[in-house]
Amino acid sequence: MVLVRLHGVIKEEGGIGVVNVDAKSVSEVLHKLPSRIKDIVGKYIKYVVIVVDGEILHVNSEKYLEGDEAVDIFLVAGGG
């Protein structure tokens, strides 16, 4: 199981901050999110940033996840 942490408006709109998903890649994680969360992420898909252990992965990334990682989903932001 992969720990998925939702942030910002995605968390607020979904009303939930953390979900566990049985998946082996980011693309699978996004596919297997609970449908309500999946819809919200889908709505913002162009602006979503996925961070896995500090690495920024594309929403279609097939990079293998061991299962002990945390996947953070943000709406893009930046600066200092």
């Binding site: 910002g8 943000f74 932001a77 930046g78 600066g79």
Partner: peptide, 18 residues
């Protein structure tokens, strides 16, 4: 939705994640 809504504090979680 990020900078406007939450202001610059929005960066805290993101910067922690990287």
């Amino acid at each position: 939705l990020s900078l406007g809504k939450y202001g610059t504090p929005n960066l805290v979680s993101l910067m922690n994640a990287i």
